[in-house]
Amino acid sequence: MPILRLENVIKTYENHTAVNNVSFDVPKGSVFGLLGPNGAGKTSLIRIITTITGADSGAVYLDGEKLNSNHPSQIGYMPEERGLYKKMKVGDHLMYLAQLKGLSKKAAKEQIHYWFDKFSITDWWDKKVEELSKGMQQKIQFIATVIHRPKLLILDEPFSGLDPINTNLIKSEIDEMNQNGTSIIFSTHRMEQVEEVCEHIVLINQGQKILEGKVADVKNQFKDNLYKIKYTGSLPDNLQMTDAADDSYKIIGQGKKSITVQVTEESASNKLLNYLISKGVHIQSFNEILPTLNEIFIKQVGESEE
């Protein structure tokens, strides 16, 4: 059973459709990328999942149960635009947010101390939020998001404005939580981060789903059967790909000590390798070139807008 299932979700505002008939599953225990350019409808979707707004039609299930008012306490949401009450003490602030998520006073206190220990900030309780640097505030923001140990964690552009040290810290925390069974939805338009952490993605543009699947599958789906071959020495002068049994190879790029070859069918890669060896080429590496998510993203978004 997926942790989250969206079925034909539609949300319209006065003059535009923010979410247009979107369905997808977020597998339990996965790190899931919700991708799309700015204004694609990501935040609208997240607001529906977090019960901030309701969908006009369609259904959302959390862990098999139709979304209801008990669910916010099982979801942790870190919005892209986030802030804290500047005049409040850090400890009081976290107590407040934790209790709003349904934690008892005692449990909230325990959790805060757990995270304070973990981040080695045990003396922060009485500090006012405004006394903290931006990076420090983001740590508090993260603690506030996960303090109630949610089943589903939704992070909207979690690393925007974070310095590299905090980025790594938060990344490793997210990793750890994921290993302990928390499902995570990552919303971003920073593709290199997605490739690094996500197993599944869904790509949204103009309110519609245009792509969905495992990262590896998506890449395979959009690959152009390109191989990059590095060699030592030199290529024979008369190297003709057409010398091979059929017309299935084409050199489309030539660099210093490397060539890029496109094959027409996947199984032809072995033949290519054999052919090159037979011609006495000293091969150093033979790699398939997969498209980056960024390339797929740009291509797909471009196509969907045409």
Binding site: P72, M78, P79, E80, G83
Partner: peptide, 15 residues
């Protein structure tokens, strides 16, 4: 203040 601070975005996920 809540709006300019963006704390409201955090709050509405709970209330």
């Amino acid at each position: 203040e809540e709006k300019t601070n963006r704390i409201v975005e955090v709050m509405v996920s709970s209330v």
